[in-house]
Nucleic acid binder design. Sequence first.
DNA 1: CAATTCCATAACCTTATGGTTATATAATGA
DNA 2: TCATTATATAACCATAAGGTTATGGAATTG
Lengths: 126, 126
Amino acid sequence: MELIGYRKADGNLDAVFAALSDPTRRAILVRLAQGEATVNELAEPFKISQPAISKHLKVLERSGLIERGINRTQRPARLKAGPMAEAVAWLEEFRKFWSGSFDQLDTLLEDLQQVQDNTKGEGTKT
Amino acid sequence: MELIGYRKADGNLDAVFAALSDPTRRAILVRLAQGEATVNELAEPFKISQPAISKHLKVLERSGLIERGINRTQRPARLKAGPMAEAVAWLEEFRKFWSGSFDQLDTLLEDLQQVQDNTKGEGTKT
DNA sequence: CAATTCCATAACCTTATGGTTATATAATGA
DNA sequence: TCATTATATAACCATAAGGTTATGGAATTG
């Protein structure tokens, strides 16, 4: 069926995981989770140049993790759900697969959840 | 507490996602999910050379996704749960964060699950 | 039309990735 | 000791990543 399309998109996993492997790009994604943003808005928190941000956006766009719009002279970026879902799905599937260390992984996941919950309430707002 | 260690390991996310971005390495991980394996065993299904596999294993080892043992003249590789858990945790956290398209992502995840379930039952047993 | 704003593109540099073949090393076996 | 097995390392190559500065171009504003 048309779901076949997703299996073909599996080749996209390369690009998705590669896109996720850069901390600047992960930060951009987190920022975009709060809503679309322009290049300048995205560049502001970083020390790197605007062209560097544009390059990162291009990588994210190629991976399908974001898409670009047009608004006057701006080209706002916004998240797309699909590719992220593919990555999650691969990891979940892998986890199911990995019956041997299933509980080990689950325990770690619980610990990590706690760490992140603590981190989020850690005083600084952003 | 000692969980601080995980936060420092967040810098490891770069290496983990980068390791996951290569299809050969993902295949190696899937293979290792069934149990530890030697370099030659891992190399067998691929057309690439043994040194290439050794390089991939080194990348996986640097990321923390695997560790190597010593057994006679062999150095079997086996999975480690922690780094994979970090990647899952980051994506899960991101997903929670991304309230805007939460349902969109969930729908896609369900679709992907079905695809993979179908794929798994596709005749071959493993 | 001219200036400004927002962003992309070009050219360049350095380092990493993914592959190769050839060779070294370490443990086992004869 | 010599050969074999299993793996690592070296040297090399091509391409890509991630950054820079400088410049180009499109839409908006004066």
